[in-house]
Design a protein around this nucleic acid. Sequence first.
RNA 1: GGAGAGUUGGCAGAGUGGUAAUGCACCGGACUCGAAAUCCGGCGAACCGGUCUAUACCGGCGCGCAGGUUCAAAUCCUGUACUCUCCUCCA
Length: 422
Amino acid sequence: MLDIKMIRQNEDEVKERLATRGVKAEKIDELLAADKKRRELVVESETLRQQKNEVSEAIAQAKRNQQDASQQIARMKKVGQQIKELENNLKEAQTKVEYIASRLPNLPNPSIPVGPDESFNVELKKIGTPRKFDFTPKPHWEIGEKLGILDFARGAKAAGSRFVYYKGLGAKLERAVYNFMLDEHTKEGYTEILPPYIVNNASMYGTGQFPKFKEDVFQVEGQDMTLIPTAEVPLTNYYRDEVIPTEQLPVYFTALTPCFRSEAGSAGRDTRGLIRMHQFNKVEMVKYCKPENSYNELEKMTKNAGNIMEKLGLPYHIITLSTGDMGFSAAMTHDLEVWIPAQNMYREISSCSNCEDFQARRAHIQYRDKNGKLRYVHTLNGSGLAVGRTVAAILENYQNQDGTVTVPEVLRPYLHGLEVIK
RNA sequence: GGAGAGUUGGCAGAGUGGUAAUGCACCGGACUCGAAAUCCGGCGAACCGGUCUAUACCGGCGCGCAGGUUCAAAUCCUGUACUCUCCUCCA
């Protein structure tokens, strides 16, 4: 959520910067008009309330002195009606302001590339060299099915499309991968969390998924419960409606959770394999920090994600997302994309974002600055990494001509020394 | 799933229709070489609005949340969330 006062004071700049994210200037005009109306109504109704309080006090006095107050009571009866009407209008105006404001995305950081879509993303760095195959590399689903470690057909039977069974060494490989990731992040100072996998609407609002993106998630019918689309939601809402003691900042959390996404609107894309599932595991990193440190923290978080791939020996590159490709709550996002040989391209495996105070304002997460004043913290989140996609990348990058898959060194301790999946 | 109790300022804790006691904490002052103790005064979050940018003042809101009754609600009514206890069930 953007600060409405800030928008009031920097109208032109806000319009300009939000335009790069596809928000029309008229939206801001509409918002400010509604806000003006709202403030006018506030003044009106508060004036009446003040009057009400004063007269009520007089009535109380009169009653105490056993005097007649029927005249004042009659007068207040009318004022009460007026207040009620005014406040109905006020509520309407307030609802309108909130409706628009809660659907405005974060202001993009001025340094990021401006453009309407992913073609304007900028590559920062390439790490590792894609392996040269002396045979045609197979897609990971073929490798997995052949080895009997992935079963998409039965996933579809039991649950539907975009679901999968991992079996035997497949399940063990997945477990090895996320245990490895959690261990690495813990070494970097992240506290491991095992959060709820279902959250309420207030939490979904706090991180910015609601109200705008309800179609993207699975909700429990008739209940205030949503299956988390990412651990970012429970991890960031951990401190919702709290003031974090300043000496505890920065706070680093990491968690492995399943993520549930409806994938509405992505029909036909990545229909095969592990890339786009309704349920997948992800190790997430979340940070809370002081505003002045958040961009430094973003760089460190991006490194933490990259570190995992480097240790796994997976080639990847880092890109900075353009204004048009960024998520709703982010001010700046670095995506890490891993090399997928069968597709001959890099595919997203991590997304690290600085949300600045956008989520903190929605979720009321504060700290006290040097002067003891309450300020919003900055929140960051990043995948470290998407586990299913990591398994896909391992299967493809480490495949052998005979259909077996070599286990990356760093994972062998997690698999009792296993060197090859066959 | 059933029954009961609870939710008030940073904490503790009164208040059952007339506009939030008190204690601790906190801030200022006195006393003191200084501190503690004591005394005096102040303060009760956050939030919203106005003056308009002082760094203050005024007002609103505010007793879990949302409604309702009333001239007036922490107090009465309805709904709801959460916590605790007991029963039931269960991994």
